[in-house]
Design a protein around this nucleic acid. Structure first.
Length: 347
DNA sequence: AATTTCCCCAACCGCGAAGTT
DNA sequence: TAACTTCGCGGTTGGGGAAAT
């Protein structure tokens, strides 16, 4: 209800702004201030819709906009805030003076997101990519326990990235986490996670779609989920899967959302979480020899303090190439992935 | 040198919230 | 309280430059 009519239906100009248009907008706002964006373009002599003017002003022409590359500290802040509030770009921008939500959003999508993916971190959940973890964990434990699964087949790269296999594996993991009734069954497959913290084992009911591993429901409806066999009958038929397809990338939607945990490798997860649902965080670690995570401050400041913009940092503020930032992060991450898993295939 | 592919980011679009009548 | 207007947000697109072939 009440949506403003689309401006381009009135023959208004769209597309890139010219210098002349910019100047008109600047002049008008300097003289009259901005208020009613609806009438502003007409008063300023612009053939633009108010929305376009507002966007141009707030994202580009505003005098307090900071230009140039993001500093490490800004990046840290973005990541930290994103881990708390998700894609609330305006909220994040409010903590970064001089940066616009659009700029931050773009920077996230083009730089940070990719970097996190390269590091094996799901940029949505800020947790290790379970599509990597679960499979390698299943594989390793299966190898270790001589599971009846046809390991040689599973080790084929094609199988590793087969979406159906992923779906089954992750649904299995999800159901395991969500069901305390089945803890002693099929122990070999869960061996690698046998020492999950109590919080995880006592994972609450799966009502929080953002944080619960069940939130990515591989089944088509809720009833199916409720009645879900913790060990889908077809799971044992994994070796029947034909992984002929090699997806160029694994859809992030596929990744089951693990319990959130911090970057700091400790239980000092930020207690300043704004969204209560996010406070259902759990620290996760595995003693599995293949999977070891040491989340010592990935791009982050000490855990006890949400990073103020101009806080001291061990980072090299504002300098460093993308590669340097990468290696810096990766060194801190210590996120080991079995050699046979080519992470690039998952990007 | 020409063409293709990739990447970045400014700008657009649709929607919901908030404000006004 | 309903109807309407305006604003702001987040997702997405596409133009253009850079890099690769």
């Amino acid at each position: 209800m009440g949506r403003s009519p689309c401006c381009d239906k009135n023959g208004l100009k769209k597309g890139p702004w010219t210098q002349e248009e910019d100047q008109k907008l600047i002049d008008y706002i300097q003289n009259h201030g901005y208020g009613n964006w609806r009438t502003l373009p007409k008063n300023a002599g612009l053939q633009r819709c108010g929305k376009s003017c507002r966007l141009r002003w707030t994202n580009y022409l505003r005098p307090d906009i900071k230009r140039g590359k993001f500093s490490f500290e800004e990046e840290e802040t973005i990541i930290q805030l994103h881990s708390i509030s998700g894609n609330k770009w305006s909220a994040i921008a409010a903590r970064l003076p001089g940066r616009t939500d659009n700029e931050i959003k773009n920077y996230w999508n083009t730089h940070i997101r990719k970097r996190l993916l390269r590091m094996g971190i799901d940029p949505v959940t800020h947790s290790p990519r379970l599509d990597l973890l679960d499979l390698s964990s299943i594989l390793s434990s299966s190898l270790y326990h001589q599971s009846p699964m046809n390991i040689s087949r599973l080790l084929g790269v094609n199988s590793l990235v087969n979406p159906e296999l992923l779906k089954l594996a992750t649904s299995f993991m999800s159901s395991k986490l969500c069901s305390s009734q089945v803890q002693n069954q099929h122990q070999p497959l869960m061996q690698s996670n046998h020492d999950l913290p109590t919080q995880v084992q006592q994972f609450p009911t799966c009502t929080t779609f953002n944080t619960c591993p069940c939130s990515i429901n591989p089944f088509s409806n809720e009833a199916q989920l409720v009645n879900m066999d913790p060990f889908p009958s077809n799971f044992s038929d994994l070796n029947d899967l034909q992984g002929d397809e090699l997806p160029s990338n694994l859809r992030e939607d596929y990744v089951p959302v693990p319990p959130k945990y911090d970057y700091y490798g400790s239980n000092q997860y930020q207690q300043t979480v704004m969204d209560p649902s996010l406070s259902e965080t759990s620290n996760f670690h595995s003693n599995n020899s293949i999977l070891s995570f040491g989340f010592a401050s990935v791009l982050s400041t000490p855990s006890s303090s949400p990073t103020p913009l101009n806080s001291n940092s061990t980072c090299n503020n504002g300098s460093g190439t993308e590669d340097e930032r990468d290696s810096y992060c990766i060194n801190l991450l210590k996120f080991e992935i079995p050699d046979f898993l080519d992470v690039n295939d998952f990007m």
